[in-house]
Simulated assay, not measured.
Amino acid sequence: MSTGLKTIVYPVKDLARAKSLFSALLETEPYVDESYYVGFRVAGQEIGLDPHGHAKGLTGPVPYWHVSDIRALLGALVDAGAEVLQDVQDVGGGRLVASAKDADGNLVGLLQDPVA
């Protein structure tokens, strides 16, 4: 089950420059500011900057659908013809992410928050 599209992650080559640009665009400072990820929260939306995104095969912004069973949904996407770009991975604190692309090259991200 999906609870909607709540996160968009941009692959970036120059994290400091991208952080400056998005801070100006969103008119706020990041709530997470690490060498591996910078995250902003604005109006219930997460905007992330991933300096390793290009190396993971990401070619542009990735919309992340928040889901309750990431492994089952990723499997269903593959059965429907998607290609896995990033298999399910814990990115900290039990938060799981994965990404795939459809037959047209569109990127689809999946995100599962830890069960409370």
Rank of each mutant, 00 (worst) to 15 (best):
residue 3 T to A: 12
residue 3 T to W: 10
residue 5 L to D: 04
residue 5 L to W: 13
residue 7 T to I: 11
residue 8 I to H: 03
residue 10 Y to D: 05
residue 12 V to I: 05
residue 12 V to A: 11
residue 16 A to N: 14
residue 17 R to S: 14
residue 18 A to G: 09
residue 18 A to L: 06
residue 22 F to Y: 15
residue 30 P to V: 00
residue 32 V to S: 00
residue 34 E to P: 00
residue 34 E to R: 15
residue 35 S to K: 14
residue 35 S to L: 04
residue 37 Y to A: 15
residue 37 Y to S: 13
residue 37 Y to Q: 07
residue 38 V to K: 00
residue 40 F to T: 01
residue 43 A to R: 11
residue 45 Q to N: 08
residue 46 E to H: 14
residue 46 E to L: 15
residue 46 E to N: 12
residue 48 G to E: 06
residue 49 L to M: 07
residue 51 P to I: 00
residue 52 H to Q: 15
residue 54 H to L: 11
residue 55 A to N: 08
residue 56 K to G: 01
residue 58 L to A: 09
residue 58 L to F: 14
residue 58 L to E: 12
residue 59 T to E: 09
residue 59 T to S: 13
residue 59 T to Y: 06
residue 65 W to H: 13
residue 69 D to E: 11
residue 70 I to H: 09
residue 71 R to F: 01
residue 72 A to W: 03
residue 72 A to L: 09
residue 73 L to R: 14
residue 74 L to K: 12
residue 75 G to A: 13
residue 76 A to T: 09
residue 76 A to P: 02
residue 77 L to H: 14
residue 77 L to P: 02
residue 78 V to Q: 10
residue 79 D to W: 02
residue 79 D to S: 13
residue 79 D to Y: 02
residue 81 G to Y: 09
residue 81 G to C: 04
residue 82 A to Q: 04
residue 83 E to G: 05
residue 84 V to H: 05
residue 85 L to D: 03
residue 85 L to G: 01
residue 85 L to Q: 06
residue 86 Q to V: 03
residue 86 Q to M: 14
residue 90 D to F: 02
residue 92 G to V: 00
residue 93 G to I: 00
residue 95 R to N: 15
residue 96 L to D: 08
residue 96 L to F: 07
residue 96 L to E: 08
residue 97 V to L: 12
residue 98 A to S: 09
residue 98 A to F: 05
residue 100 A to S: 12
residue 101 K to G: 04
residue 101 K to Y: 02
residue 103 A to H: 06
residue 107 L to Y: 10
residue 108 V to Q: 08
residue 109 G to L: 05
residue 109 G to E: 04
residue 110 L to G: 07
residue 111 L to D: 06
residue 111 L to F: 05
residue 113 D to W: 05
residue 113 D to F: 07
residue 114 P to Y: 10
residue 115 V to N: 10
